[in-house]
Design a protein around this nucleic acid. Structure first.
Lengths: 213, 213
DNA sequence: TTCTACACGTGACGC
DNA sequence: TGCGTCACGTGTAGA
């Protein structure tokens, strides 16, 4: 006789535990298949497959619930619902942040007009024979004098100041003059806490900054 | 193992139809079926409820799939899986953007030393009798002369320049002097494309900017 | 055919 | 008690 042990096993696993828990006794279905006699208990072939599928889905839902911070209910449907709202919130936040960041970066972006301005600026500089220039000299123990001549671009001065600040360089006295398609910037700078600034390193830093803005 | 074979747990579709057909499909119910005679066929009271529940879950899963951009498969499990990865991606992106933005804003952040510097600056200003001041005057048709005296804070000048640029105000000639805990800024400004700047509005704008930086 | 994914109706369990 | 949710095994449709 074929006692379907594996059949009983796979089916019973939870039922058995449940039965053992509540002591309600084993209850099992007789198979009512087209070929079915009273003693015959057989299962469909996809029983295990279906069980795996269910388990998989449940597991994924559990994972989903685990990464969604706000949970209103433990229901499967509500898990998905919360995930949906959370995704929407995340999307909105990403868009907002991205927009904000873009706005922040675009405070001195190049527009088409700016482009033409730049062309005009470069042309002006060439016409007037103005060369870009970065000079750094020592004033006293912890102050440097800086002279910068660069092509005029919109927002470039702002970016330069920002970069200086980010590198811990504090402008004490600064002068900007715009003329003939060029920025002439002279500044007296010092370190963040009065630290001494090395001349050559500062000059290189300035040139790096200028090349990037 | 004691399993009652006579107990019928699974009364499925075909049994149902069978029962409706001939009425003899039901064999007998030993224990679970409290109310079940041979001729009656309906039993599941929660049939419609369960159907709604399933429909709800399926619908939510469909919605979830609709808002997740990358879909590898149409399976329910894969839908949830893709949603999970998408959420993780979104979370990472939010964190990255937030960090980047914070970094960008923190280029001129207040540290403890800065705080004391600010205190010293305010104290200095009070000691020397320097008042904050914003003055705007007309130079010619499209240029304004601006004089600003504000408390010295790290990065404040940079922020001011940035704000001006973001509002389409172009500094032509600018002078910054740091003394006695204060920034003295004088600047000749004009509109982005040579547009005329209204005096009062510009002054209000400047004061708003200063209050925020 | 077999394989895969799904919807179905049902009993069990918790509140 | 009833209502809501779940896992179960099965039939079935598409590839």
């Amino acid at each position: 006789m074929e006692y379907e042990d594996e059949d009983r096993l796979c089916v019973t696993l939870e039922e058995f535990s449940l039965a053992t828990e509540n002591g309600s006794g084993m209850k099992r279905t007789g198979r009512k298949r087209s070929y079915d006699d009273d003693t015959r208990e057989y299962k469909s072939k996809n029983l295990e497959t279906e069980r795996r599928r269910r388990e998989k889905l449940s597991s994924r839902l559990l994972m989903l619930r685990s990464i969604v911070p706000i949970i209103t209910n433990m229901n499967k449907a509500t898990i998905v619902e919360d995930a949906i709202t959370y995704i929407e919130k995340l999307q909105a936040k990403v868009q907002s942040l991205s927009h904000e960041l873009h706005q922040m970066e675009a405070t001195s972006e190049d527009t088409a007009e700016t482009k033409t301005d730049e062309i005009d600026a470069a042309e002006d500089m060439r016409k007037w024979g103005i060369q870009e220039e970065v000079r750094v000299a020592q004033i006293d123990g912890n102050k440097l004098w800086v002279k910068i001549i660069i092509e005029k671009k919109r927002g470039r001065f702002s970016k330069l100041m920002e970069a200086l600040n980010s590198f811990g360089i504090e402008p004490i006295d600064t002068n900007l003059t715009t003329t003939k398609g060029a920025f002439l910037i002279t500044s007296c700078i010092q370190g963040k806490d009065g630290d001494r600034l090395a001349i050559h390193q500062t000059k290189n830093l300035l040139q790096d900054i200028i090349n990037e803005i």
